[in-house]
């Protein structure tokens, strides 16, 4: 209650019969009703601040739109479903293994061994896949393109890849040199041949999307060709190392 601050001019104030009373009201007179009124105003100030300064503005969802929230919820639900399925599968595996049959344990170990051998490139692989041939007489294809190719093939589910005469494994490297692209230190000559074992349709689609590998190779002026085959084999292996 501060009427004094709102009175416009001193002359006006003097003309008001109530101004003296108003000033008197402003005086500091601690009496019981005044304290009570002060308490009420305290509550009012508290309420106003509580209503204006909302707690929890640090939570990003508070201001998110409903559609976004629904999307997030859906994502979380799908993720939970996936994880639950994985959890059930692993629990079943654990039960089987604990059931004590060594046959199953051995089978499981063999399965993992085979998968790891394919992954590390220590065993020949055969199956459906894709043969890619990049005719590059002008030498415009560099290491980055080949690396992109390998990555796109892996993303598309390639189990094993051969580049030139080298098996592409986890520590394979690509480099540019005067004689062309080096794969693990060996030059690959045009036409560059890539063999990928995996689902041919998926890999083919991945390579031929706009802006994908086929596009970028052709933009550079080289020739790109991919052909699917139901049975391909990669016989090149890398020696097993132990460390």
């Amino acid at each position: 209650m501060d009427p004094h601050g709102e009175t416009p001019a001193t002359s006006e104030e003097a003309a008001q019969p109530s101004s003296a009373a108003l000033l008197a009201q402003l005086a500091f007179r601690p009496s019981r009703p005044h304290l009570f009124i002060g308490l009420l105003f305290l509550i009012l100030g508290l309420l106003v601040t509580l209503a204006i300064v909302r707690p929890g503005t640090e939570e990003p969802w508070r201001n998110a739109r409903t559609e976004d929230l629904v999307q997030i919820l859906d994502d979380l639900g799908a993720r939970q479903d996936r994880l639950e399925a994985e959890s059930i599968r692993l629990a079943g595996l654990q039960r089987d293994l604990e059931a004590g049959s060594t046959v199953e344990a051995v089978a499981e170990a063999q399965r993992r061994l085979a998968a790891l051998q394919v992954l590390t490139g220590t065993t020949p692989v055969s199956g459906p896949g894709l043969t890619i041939s990049i005719a590059d007489p002008k030498g415009v294809v560099d290491a980055a393109v080949l690396l992109d190719a390998v990555q796109e093939l892996r993303d598309a589910g390639a189990e094993a890849i051969q580049a030139g005469s080298n098996r592409v494994v986890v520590n394979t490297w690509f480099a540019d040199s005067d004689t062309g692209v080096l794969v693990d230190g060996q030059p690959v000559t045009s036409p560059i041949r890539l063999i990928a074992i995996g689902d041919p349709d998926t890999m083919g689609a991945a390579l031929s999307i706009p802006g994908g590998l086929a596009d970028s190779v052709r933009t550079r002026g080289a020739d790109f060709e991919a052909s699917a085959a139901q049975s391909l084999s990669i016989s090149v292996t890398v020696p097993e190392t132990t460390n």
């Binding site: 002060g38 105003f41 305290l42 100030g45 601040t49």
Partner: peptide, 22 residues
Amino acid sequence: MIAIIGLLVGIAIGILWHPLVP
């Protein structure tokens, strides 16, 4: 006067202490 003090104290409590409204 007390009313103004009360108002200011209330605002201060609201900002500083920040009680969660049920």
